[in-house]
Design a protein around this nucleic acid. Structure first.
Lengths: 337, 337
DNA sequence: CTGAAAGCGCTAACAA
DNA sequence: TTGTTAGCGCTTTCAG
């Protein structure tokens, strides 16, 4: 069941069928009607493999994320897919589990599938990989940092704004002892968030304490373990900012296990504002980064690179804002001096 | 850069290159070596579109889930993808948001992409859709219920076992007033879980109360709202089972908002055992359904249908167990009569 | 064991 | 405006 059957039934050439399907305006309405009727009758739909092969366009986007298991990403994926489908694209997803080798593998797989563009929405990518990518001609979108290359755009996130708001909020509450649990430090964006925190601390006139600067890994376990370390070895600050919400939830859990809780014993701020953050007990104060905005910008950038005229100019950089959302895990410090 | 360049460089025909790549055993090792060298030198990789077109196999699986935003599904997807990749398949994901129209759309998109098989891992699918699917020749896997058709298998989940354990656990603790929040009732599996609950109640000799049988929608909001309804209008039981963990977490949140908590004021049991359940405050008692097992069975069934000889027999039905995991949201009922 | 050649289903010149 | 035809990059007969 192929284009030929349709042509035969509609008594036209296969070219006419092709044109009809592809909305070429010069098709006689009469013939077009016959073609559509035949298509309906045969329940025909085009073979996208063949289409892709001859046209050189797969209408497929790759979307690479760090960890599909971290709720931030599914929320991002959902937005990405929706916008992509609006533009007539399908989405191929790859999850890397923060493993640079898997990033490479994913990209490779996507190249083989001849994706028309790939969004590398993993926070922080290692430098050598970037170099490899730089030589590719397919459109790409990155977060925070990417190769400087005509067909790629980097979406840059204004971490500082939200983090400063967070630190200021804590300082306003009377906290002076504030710790920070970062993501995996080899990742660029984990470092950026950490640096923003340090800068923000200075800005509000507070001293940061290296003993309270921990490295996590953006997972629940990482947050729990980092908090455990603080509890056991280092003594705890009165407030803690976390590089993402999963880490913060892990912290809350570690606190619970030793009979402490937020905000009475420790104020906690997360990052991302995943949907479930609001449902934590107590609801998590966090810094929101809009994944719908991120998703839309990413797809827009990609389609912009593919047909620049149809979509207007693509700005080379896009700024994504972050913003503090105060809920119930932050409060005045206890009188522990 | 195509197979011809490789052939030219290796001084063989394109057929030999093709054979080498596809591990056809009759290729002279000498020539094969030359081919591999050429491939390396050119950094060649085959065009999967062309491959798919000619071979009629895309090496693509479709995976349809209800709601990618519910952490159960990303965990499932992760497992599915991993096993699929082990078998040399790529995965195309579709999320339907419980909308039957979108299920149809997803299937359509996947058919167009000529997937070699599709896993419809959405809990509960409506009957008319099933009928449509029944006529398809591509291998399919379903959960709980599916068309009876040679190239499809249904993975059937033993909800009853876990739910009975849950109800018995509650009864053992001294609960007699137990409510249930279901998923969207048009969905087959939501009804099944509800029925299992009712049967289990009878089994342990408890009466269920229709006022405490609510319909949720498997989201956080659904759980919160159902609990709100109970609180405002219906009076509350001493224990509540939920059709999934998201619902249970919503319940916990609703409790928190009115100053109550589990297990003191209400025992709560979820379903799924998503990873974050363990991190709730307090950690959620729930019924585990193994998504890795589910994922593996699904992929195995699919590859089994594709080349039956290579993978051994495929059992027509596969049973997935469920099991109670007791954590901290269940306890003895308060002395409220 | 290897190569030549015929398509897979479709799009896009080019001709009519 | 429509039809004819040459491929897209690959696999797979079929001869050699």
């Amino acid at each position: 069941m192929d284009i030929r059957s349709v042509a035969a039934l509609a008594k036209v050439s296969i070219a006419t069928v092709s044109r009809t399907i592809n909305q070429v305006p010069t098709v006689d309405p009469e013939l077009a009607a016959r073609v559509w009727a035949a298509i309906d009758q045969l329940q025909y739909f085009p073979n996208s493999q063949a289409r892709a092969l001859v046209s050189g366009r797969s209408r497929l986007f790759g979307l690479i994320v760090s960890d599909i298991t971290n709720p931030f990403f599914p929320e991002l994926i959902q937005g990405f897919e929706q916008v992509a489908v609006e533009h007539g694209y399908e989405v191929l997803i790859g999850s890397t589990n923060y493993d640079p080798k898997r990033v490479e593998l994913c990209i490779r797989r996507m190249l083989e599938r001849k994706v028309d563009g790939v969004a590398i929405m993993t926070f922080g990518i290692e430098e050598p990989l970037l170099a490899q990518l730089a030589s590719r001609e397919i459109p790409m979108v990155f977060i925070d940092v990417g190769p400087d290359h005509a067909r790629s755009t980097v979406l840059s996130i204004d971490y500082y704004r939200g983090i400063l708001q967070g630190v200021a909020h804590l300082a306003g509450l009377g906290h002076t002892k504030i710790g920070f649990i970062s993501g995996p430090l080899p990742l660029h964006s984990a470092q950026t968030r950490r640096d923003c925190f340090l800068t923000a601390m200075e800005r509000v006139g507070l001293k940061s304490n290296p003993a309270w600067m921990l490295e996590g890994d953006h997972t629940l376990e990482g947050g729990r373990d980092a908090m455990g370390k603080l509890l056991k070895e280092r003594g705890i600050p009165t407030a803690l900012m976390c590089s993402n919400d999963m880490t913060a939830i892990g912290v809350l859990h570690a606190l619970f296990e030793v009979g402490m809780k937020a905000p009475e014993d420790l104020s906690v701020i997360g990052f991302d504002d995943i949907h479930i953050a609001e449902y934590m007990l107590p609801p998590l104060t966090t810094i929101r980064m809009s994944r719908t905005e991120l998703a839309r910008s990413a797809v827009d950038a990609l389609v912009g690179h593919i047909d620049p005229e149809r979509s207007g100019m693509v700005p080379p950089k896009v700024k994504i804002e972050t913003e503090l959302v105060v809920r119930r895990t932050t409060g005045a410090p206890a009188g522990r001096g």
